[in-house]
């Protein structure tokens, strides 16, 4: 397994507020890596650090062997071009139709012809179940549809790294399951590495190959590894509570 993203001794803060400290873990190629933890523990913040929106207070983030924050703008944008991001709120551009939302990254980074761009947009929208919604504005569709449209935009460039901030929040169970399958499918078919912020235990156990647990009280990570390993081996009560909805270990044995 080759490490594609390495986080080394990362400390994150807003101003003088330390959010999380001493984070060290690696994300391997082809991983579906879950970032877990209670609300407000800093998952979205970690994601923002990984995608270059926020500078670490201390510590390093390596993409391959390159230290992201020592690269110049151009080298950073080369990495970001290979990155697809689904923001927690969807973050669709509200003045553009869904089709234009998806077209913008394609126009920005490729010189594909107009008809090719149209076809790619149709394909990606149909992947997330939004066939026929090209001409809608984000304000005209439901919250869950917005989430899926954001996903379509995230995968429009066939990225190598995919970052999802709570992709299944706001989706019905069937769609959430489809989304999980879609994520696995994209990982398998396009060889992407997926970093997933989620609370959904279902998704975590179904698709995550590795995970890290961030704790809000300790302000650091308490466990890293595959979710099953964590459930079986972790000694930390917070981790076990999280993974069992507070019902304690071996809840299924009763």
């Amino acid at each position: 397994m080759t490490a594609v993203i390495t986080i080394d001794n990362l400390t994150m803060s807003y101003g003088s507020d330390i959010i999380q400290k001493d984070l060290t873990f690696t994300i391997n190629r082809g991983d579906i890596f879950a970032i877990m933890g209670g609300s407000g523990c800093g998952k979205s913040t970690l994601l923002r650090h990984l995608i270059g929106l926020h500078r670490p207070r201390t510590g390093t983030i390596y993409y391959g062997t390159e230290d992201f924050w020592t690269l110049d703008d151009q080298e950073q944008s080369l990495i970001l071009r290979k990155t697809g991001i689904l923001y927690q709120s969807g973050a669709l551009w509200s003045s553009m139709t869904l089709a234009d939302n998806l077209a913008l990254p394609l126009q920005q980074y490729t010189n594909l012809s107009g008809s090719m761009i149209q076809d790619i947009i149709h394909f990606k929208l149909s992947l997330v179940g939004l066939k026929g919604c090209e001409d809608y504005y984000p304000s005209e569709i439901s919250g869950g549809m917005r989430k899926r449209a954001g996903l379509a935009r995230a995968i429009v460039l066939d990225p190598e790294y995919l970052f999802f901030d709570e992709p299944s929040a706001g989706l019905d169970p069937v769609n959430a399951k489809n989304l999980d399958e879609l994520i696995v499918e994209i990982r398998n078919s396009l060889g992407a590495t997926v970093v997933l912020v989620t609370h959904e235990l279902h998704s975590i156990f179904a698709i995550a190959t590795n995970a890290v647990y961030l704790d809000a009280e300790e302000k650091t990570m308490l466990a890293v590894g595959s979710p099953e390993e964590m459930l079986n081996n972790s000694t930390h009560q917070n981790v076990i509570d999280f993974l069992t909805r507070g019902e304690g270990r071996r809840r299924t044995s009763s």
Binding site: S126, L127, G132
Partner: peptide, 12 residues
Amino acid sequence: LSCSTPPKPLKK
């Protein structure tokens, strides 16, 4: 996946 979604659920 792409073909399993019902085509054109809504039209503008």
